[in-house]
């Protein structure tokens, strides 16, 4: 049995870093020998969460996004946080197709994809304090 392993990452909230964030998390995940599909699922979920921090949390101002990952046995845990404006109504934000930014062609599918591609999703948010997305995925479930 492998020992637990943790990783933290902090980077600027600019769109160039969306690719960096998901690829880095995917690289950390490879220790669990995930399938290509599991890697794709995690990359999409991370990309959605990071994009939310940039567009919604910080509304395109440049601040810091923090990612924390932990591997424990076959469980992969990832936490993505911003200290941005927070979400007034988390339940509404998580409804498929709901978006506060239709003019920017946001599809409103971000949370739906995170929920579909990960095994657990928790959203902790406080207006004016920020948002943390906590996700888990068991690797090698199938």
């Amino acid at each position: 049995m492998q020992r637990d392993n943790e990783m933290s990452l902090e980077f600027d909230s600019i769109s160039n870093n969306e690719g960096f964030a998901r690829v880095t998390v995917a690289a950390f995940l490879t220790q669990l020998n995930p399938t290509l599909e599991e890697v794709a699922d995690v990359k999409t979920a991370v990309s959605e969460a990071v994009t939310n921090c940039i567009i919604h949390g910080y509304e395109n101002s440049i601040e810091k996004i923090h990612i924390y990952c932990k591997i424990s046995a076959n469980e992969f845990y990832v936490e993505i946080s911003d200290k941005g404006k927070g979400i007034e109504n988390v339940k509404q934000a998580m409804e498929p197709l709901f978006t506060t930014k239709p003019s920017e062609e946001r599809s409103g599918m971000g949370f739906a994809f995170m929920e579909a591609f990960m095994d657990e999703l928790e959203v902790v948010s406080e207006p004016l304090k920020g948002t943390t997305i906590k996700m888990k995925k068991i690797i090698g479930l199938t």
Binding site: T44, T51, E105, S107, A112, F113
Partner: peptide
């Protein structure tokens, strides 16, 4: 090789 929900928004737009 990769797409997230931004791609859905692009298609709908």
């Amino acid at each position: 090789e990769f797409m997230d929900s931004s791609g859905i928004g692009l298609l709908l737009g």
